[in-house]
Design a protein around this nucleic acid. Sequence first.
DNA 1: TTGCGTGCAAAGGTTTTGCATGGCA
DNA 2: TGCCATGCAAAACCTTTGCACGCAA
Lengths: 137, 137
Amino acid sequence: MKKEYLTKQNEALLTYLKKRHGKHVTVKEICDDFHVRGIDVSQATVYRRLERLVEEGSAAKYIVDGNTSACFAYIGEEKVEEMNTFHCKCVKCGKLYHIQCDEFTKIEKHLLKEHGFAIDPTRTVLYGVCKACAKKK
Amino acid sequence: MKKEYLTKQNEALLTYLKKRHGKHVTVKEICDDFHVRGIDVSQATVYRRLERLVEEGSAAKYIVDGNTSACFAYIGEEKVEEMNTFHCKCVKCGKLYHIQCDEFTKIEKHLLKEHGFAIDPTRTVLYGVCKACAKKK
DNA sequence: TTGCGTGCAAAGGTTTTGCATGGCA
DNA sequence: TGCCATGCAAAACCTTTGCACGCAA
């Protein structure tokens, strides 16, 4: 087990993430915000810290778009098993919906029992078309 | 509506994709295979053709990994509405499972009715841990 | 002949990495 | 002091794009 130092960069990132608990952010958004507020944290550090947070289970990484950039969300102390939130991304307007629904928990259990597959909701994004965009059409 | 020419590159790609009907492949895999077999199709062309196939609905694009690279699968004439296949990717061993299950169709309908969100199964990948990897642990 | 398709290389963007330096414990 | 963390810039990747040329119809 490695030691971990408490640096101001680490602290700044954690503060930022906790303030947006559960929301998704990109590395770019984080860096931009830091830049605007005059906080100096290099992009490389943000990547390295986020990577570690994901390993530790305190953050989740999503590949949300056809676009290359990844999204991260802080999930902190929440136990993954208790989360019934999942993400839906509209492929038309690009909006990301956080949906809480027990039906999803059901399919989760079904998949586990019948197919032996344990979904990790923190990593999963469902793609489709949202209500608003369906109407427009 | 644009005219479409039938070129040998186009033909080679379609042959390749049809042979792997329903399976997922990356652009790199396609190019490598072509290279090995001495077929000359530039990477740019593969991207352009795949993009068009996706537009036409003959292929599906997945963002499958934490890695940046996208996967494509040929779905040909199948109508998307009839597909009850979805994809599960194991985050431990990296294996991609194609699962057919009516339960998934149910959650699809539920999401549409209750949340107004129409999932596109051809774009969606569920992440989690597969049976084999769960046992290892 | 027309104009779409292709190849090449450059450009664009995101993420990773090597190395010297900085800073926590 | 001992190491981990950080910054910077370069490198590594994947994907897109511009342009001239090739080729199907």
